[in-house]
Simulated scan of single mutants.
Amino acid sequence: MATRKLGDNTTTDLFSPIALGPYALKNRIVMAPLTRARAPKGVATRLTQEYYSQRATAGLIISEGLNISPQAVGYAFTPGIWTTEHIKSWRPVTSAVHGDGGRIFAQLWHVGRVSHPDLQLGGVLPVAPSAVRPDVDAFTVEGKKPAKTPRALRIDELPGIVADYEQAARNALDAGFDGVEIHAANGYLLDQFMRDGANQRTDAYGGSVENRIRLTLEVTRAVAAICDGGRTGLRISPLNTASDLSDSNPEPVFTALVDQLNDIVLAYLHVVEGVTGGSRTVEGGFDLNVLRQRFKGLYMANNGYDRDLALSARRSNTADLIAFGRPYIANPDLVTRLERGAPLNPLDSATAYGGGDEGYIDYPFQAVKAPV
């Protein structure tokens, strides 16, 4: 693709089109998935439609995490994608994004042990690979509560987990999404299976690296068969310690995973570089460029990217796509601001989660000067 000259006499293809699966994205800038906790009934609303359509200049939008089943829910006021009502609620959102020239993928989410009985049907325990309690607070309707020790999933229940992801993918396409992203990062269910700090199983889904990555690969293959033609992405966070997750040696886990992913037609591999919202370097970690080199498809980089770092990543070709998270909350016109080198609106952390219009759809666009 052609590069474009910027005002500071640099050139880049960050703002140029790129092919992703069957789509031609307008640019290489991606709106990362961002939980906003503004779905009190678990469905998308008029505000959701406005919020995403405002940000349709991104090359690709990845939706906030959509719970794939009642069991998957781990945060109050987050939306789902398992019922007919959910599907219908998202159709105006995807239609609005498409009407403004954008593309949008649905992120498929199961939090596993990072939940609470208050968020589960019948008040049952959350599920996990093993009965290991995370040292975190769950976000319930009544506020933060300490997580409980989860129930270990039986091996005969795992095909049902895969089936829930499959159905969620079908539902997302029915709702008008262009594709899906499987959330296997940030300490949630699939990530829990891959890490020996949370997975103490002794069956075919625990112990060896091959066994621990098995469920993630089963889900990815199943979803990719539904969202065929390169409409499935996968998000991982190899060095992230979010949700009290750990692994004694993550490099062989994620290199083995990536090697297996090369046999699946994916839209992209989405990698959180470092700790989400925190440091990009982790003590005892490994060079994530190894994954970039091993993966044969598009590599999407995420975490702490600003304009300079994004431009540098494209010049050095360390990433094909750059995902921006928090800057997209406060800057619906982020692509324009990055291209111009314009200042960004500051983020109001107090309105990041929950609430209504304020801090959601009322951040200002940069004024455009009228031609002289």
Rank of each mutant, 00 (worst) to 15 (best):
R340P: 01
G233L: 07
R337Y: 10
A319C: 03
A184Q: 05
L173G: 01
I236F: 06
K88V: 04
S312T: 06
L158Q: 09
D348T: 08
N199I: 12
H116K: 02
C227G: 07
Q260S: 15
Y188P: 02
A39M: 06
Y305K: 11
R292T: 01
L266K: 06
R314H: 11
N9T: 00
S316P: 00
D357Q: 04
R154F: 08
S246W: 15
V271R: 08
E251T: 07
D203T: 10
V111L: 15
V132D: 02
Y51G: 05
T232L: 05
R151D: 01
T220N: 08
Y299A: 05
A37Y: 14
P159Y: 03
A350G: 09
A19P: 04
S130E: 02
I361F: 01
H183C: 09
Y75A: 12
E181T: 12
P117A: 09
T11G: 13
S349D: 00
E273P: 00
R292W: 00
A138W: 02
F254Q: 04
R151V: 04
L121Y: 02
L190V: 11
L119Y: 03
T149Q: 14
V180S: 06
Q49K: 07
M31W: 08
N67K: 00
L25W: 01
N262C: 10
N199Y: 08
L334V: 11
T255N: 05
V97T: 08
A168G: 11
V111A: 15
A370H: 12
